[in-house]
């Protein structure tokens, strides 16, 4: 088991009221799987992802990566931010090199890894540009390979394509898939887009607005690359749409 989420509870205090966001969330992920956490806004999926990343702490519960308990953020879990969070004062190259320098990777190895990453992200020749000089798609690819630079055990992505339009999303989804297929890192991706979840995931976990309760946990058994127009693809989408509708209903106690 690569990643174990066990009995995670998290509450926020809002206007003096204690609001439970996640209640007793548990699941396990096998190595090399691409998982989507699908849910309506406000279902706590991003909160859960940041808890796995170690950016914030759960009130109770346990996150295990391999054998190791997560206590804080670390390079064993790569993170792709919704707005990419590329450092604007560093070039594409320096952004990608940054995590490798942090874990004290040797210079020769670093260089080799950089070249490999630039190639799979199709960023060759663009490495000296700054983030504000490149397109949204290139930023996304830079952020992705930067998160993969330290060969993390798990890659966490928070709506990595959320800021883009439909057309761009679809083409970047297949690019993301290509990059992922290179070394099949275990992935947990947060999304609210059913199509994106079906296209990319081996398994989709649907979380509801009701304290993040998991309403569905569905494997997607389709060959890659997936045909968006096939009947099976449509069926998966329809099923997940139904679950998502169910997940959007808020039940007040």
């Amino acid at each position: 088991m690569e990643l174990r989420v066990e009995g995670i509870n998290k509450a926020f205090i809002n206007n003096g009221k204690n609001k439970e966001v996640l209640k007793d969330i548990s699941f396990e992920i096998e190595k090399g799987q691409f998982i989507s956490l699908l849910g309506p806004s406000g279902c706590g999926k991003t909160t859960l992802l940041t808890i796995i990343a170690g950016f914030q702490k759960a009130d109770s519960g346990l996150i295990l990566v391999g054998e190791n308990k997560v206590t804080k953020a670390g390079p064993d879990r790569g993170f792709v931010f919704q707005n990419y969070a590329l450092f604007p004062w560093m070039t594409v190259k320096d952004n990608i090199l940054f995590p490798m320098k942090q874990i004290k990777m040797g210079k020769a190895e670093r260089q080799k890894r950089l070249e490999h990453l630039l190639t799979i992200a199709q960023l060759n020749g663009q490495e000296h540009l700054y983030p504000h000089q490149i397109s949204g798609g290139m930023k996304q690819r830079t952020a992705l390979v930067r998160a993969l630079a330290t060969t993390p055990d798990v890659l966490l992505m928070d709506e990595p394509l959320g800021a883009l339009d439909h057309q761009m999303r679809q083409s970047l989804q297949s690019e993301l898939e290509d990059i992922w297929l290179e070394d099949r890192t275990t992935v947990v991706m947060v999304t609210h887009d059913v199509d994106e979840a079906v296209y990319l995931s081996d398994r989709v976990i649907v979380m509801s607005r009701n304290k993040g309760k998991i309403v569905a946990d569905m494997p997607i058994e389709l060959g890659r690359p997936r045909n968006r127009k096939s009947k099976e693809y449509e069926e998966y989408k329809n099923k997940l749409e139904n679950y998502l509708e169910q997940a959007s209903l808020v039940t007040e106690e």
Partner: peptide, 10 residues
């Protein structure tokens, strides 16, 4: 996000 990104990169 920059702090979190840097921390998650070690």
């Amino acid at each position: 996000d920059y702090y979190n990104a840097a921390r998650s990169m070690g």
